[in-house]
Amino acid sequence: MLDPTCTPPAENHDQALAELDTAVHVAREMLAAYGSTDYADPAAVAQAFGATRESLRILLRALGRAHAAEGGVTR
């Protein structure tokens, strides 16, 4: 029997692509804001590193969801 709460694959795929688009936008905004820094200021370097790390995390998470929505196996 089908689970009535289960989202059809096409909707999962569309949602995953929308999340990926949003993740790319957010990552670009973060990199634009924190991508260049004064390396003489340790706090600015830490902030830029954190923004870069968070941007990458957001993108990888969204890519994993998009891949899973296409029927791929995620690890």
Rank of each mutant, 00 (worst) to 15 (best):
R28D: 14
I58A: 06
E70V: 00
R75Y: 10
P42G: 04
T5E: 13
H67K: 10
R61T: 15
A51T: 05
G50W: 04
E11I: 10
T5L: 10
L2V: 13
L59Y: 03
G71E: 04
P9D: 07
G72Y: 00
D3M: 03
A68W: 00
A69I: 01
E29G: 10
D38R: 05
V24A: 11
I58W: 02
R28F: 10
S55T: 05
E29Q: 13
L59K: 03
P9F: 01
A32F: 10
R57G: 02
A23M: 05
A23Y: 03
A44E: 12
E19W: 01
S55F: 06
D14F: 08
D38M: 02
V73L: 15
V24M: 10
D14C: 07
E19Y: 01
T37M: 13
A69V: 01
E19G: 03
L31T: 10
E70F: 00
T37L: 08
G64C: 02
R75W: 11
F49K: 12
G64P: 04
A16N: 01
A33Q: 14
T7A: 15
A68T: 02
T7W: 09
H67E: 08
D3K: 04
A68C: 00
L56C: 08
G35I: 05
G72K: 00
M30E: 13
D21Q: 09
R61G: 11
A48I: 02
R53M: 11
T74W: 06
N12C: 14
P4M: 07
I58Q: 11
Q15H: 08
V45H: 03
A48F: 01
V73W: 08
T52R: 10
D14R: 15
Y39W: 11
A48E: 01
T5R: 15
T22E: 14
L31I: 15
V26F: 03
A43R: 13
L60F: 07
E19V: 03
L63N: 12
A43P: 00
G50I: 00
S55V: 04
C6D: 15
E11P: 00
G72N: 00
H13M: 12
T7S: 13
A51E: 04
H13I: 07
A32E: 14
A66N: 04
P4L: 05
A66S: 08
D41Y: 01
P8C: 10
V26S: 07
T74H: 04
A27E: 06
T52L: 10
E54R: 14
L17W: 07
A44R: 08
P9T: 06
L20Y: 06
P9H: 01
T22A: 14
T52Q: 11
